[in-house]
Structures are given as structure tokens and as C-alpha cells.
């Protein structure tokens, strides 16, 4: 069983924090297939968040095929998050490092790099949704 740390001040919506923490727990092996997630009642009693928020998070996890509600018993882990194939991370990290080097040479400081990255990510997202 895991417990959630939910930050009301975070820019990440509360339901997404729950989703991310479950995914993280699965990646780290804290949770495994067959484990039971805390009930909505238990989560809200511990965190004082809206029950609908927890339900929304659990539904999102269910849609991703990670968990499954069993009537009268609770919500159980049924799968693991599908990550990219091994090696993808390191390959991308190498090319990103190269890009960062060239950005530094061009005179960008860390803050400008972060800002540029954020803008690019948002533009890409808008392109996808458009």
C-alpha cells in the first residue's frame, strides 16, 4: 500500500500528482501487479482532497491499463507503465547534452535554456492537439 503526498500549491493538478506517484511507485517497484491501492475514502481521510479528484486519478490509471477496480474489494494493480525500449533514455540524453553544450556556447544561461525548453514543449503539445 502506498500513501500520497499531495501539494495543493503545485502547478501540477492534484489528480495528476496521484497518477504520477502511482506510476513512479510502479517503476520503482514499490507497487507491483496484484497490489491494492488505498480506497478513495482512505486517501481523502489522509490528505483532505476532494474524493472526485482521487476517483479521476484512479480512472485515468484504469484507462492506461495500470489498475482495475474490483467491485466491493478496491482497486488493484494489473499492469506496469509501458516505458520506451531500453537505451532510449541514454541515447536521447546524449543528444540533449550535445544541444545544451551548443546553447551554452551561443551564450544562453540555464534559465534561458529552461524557458526555451518549456516554450518548445508547449508548442509541440499544441501542434499535437491542433
Amino acid at each position: 500500500m502506498i500513501s500520497f503526498r499531495l501539494d495543493g500549491r503545485s502547478v501540477v493538478p492534484t489528480y495528476l500528482q496521484i497518477v504520477q506517484q502511482v506510476r513512479q511507485a510502479l517503476r520503482m517497484g514499490v507497487l507491483d501487479v496484484g497490489d491494492k491501492l488505498p480506497t478513495v475514502r482512505e486517501v481523502v481521510a489522509a490528505t483532505a482532497v476532494n474524493p472526485n479528484t482521487v476517483l479521476k486519478a484512479y480512472r485515468e490509471l484504469e484507462r492506461d491499463g495500470l489498475v482495475e477496480p474490483r467491485a466491493g474489494h478496491g482497486t488493484f494493480v494489473v499492469g506496469r507503465p509501458s516505458g520506451p525500449p531500453p537505451g532510449t533514455h541514454s541515447r536521447l540524453a546524449r543528444s540533449l547534452a550535445q544541444w545544451v553544450r551548443s546553447a551554452r556556447e551561443a551564450g544562453l544561461d540555464d534559465e534561458s535554456i529552461e524557458s526555451l525548453l518549456r516554450i518548445t514543449l508547449r508548442a509541440a503539445a499544441e501542434e499535437e492537439t491542433a
Binding site: V40, R41, A45, A46, T47, A48, V49, P51
Partner: peptide, 14 residues
């Protein structure tokens, strides 16, 4: 405050 709201949230979860 937190305990009160948790109590409330738990009731709403029912």
C-alpha cells in the same frame, strides 16, 4: 483545519 477537512472529505467519499 486539516483534520476537519479530512473528516469532511471522508464523509463526501461515502
Amino acid at each position: 483545519r486539516r483534520q476537519f477537512l479530512a473528516h469532511l472529505a471522508e464523509a463526501a467519499a461515502g
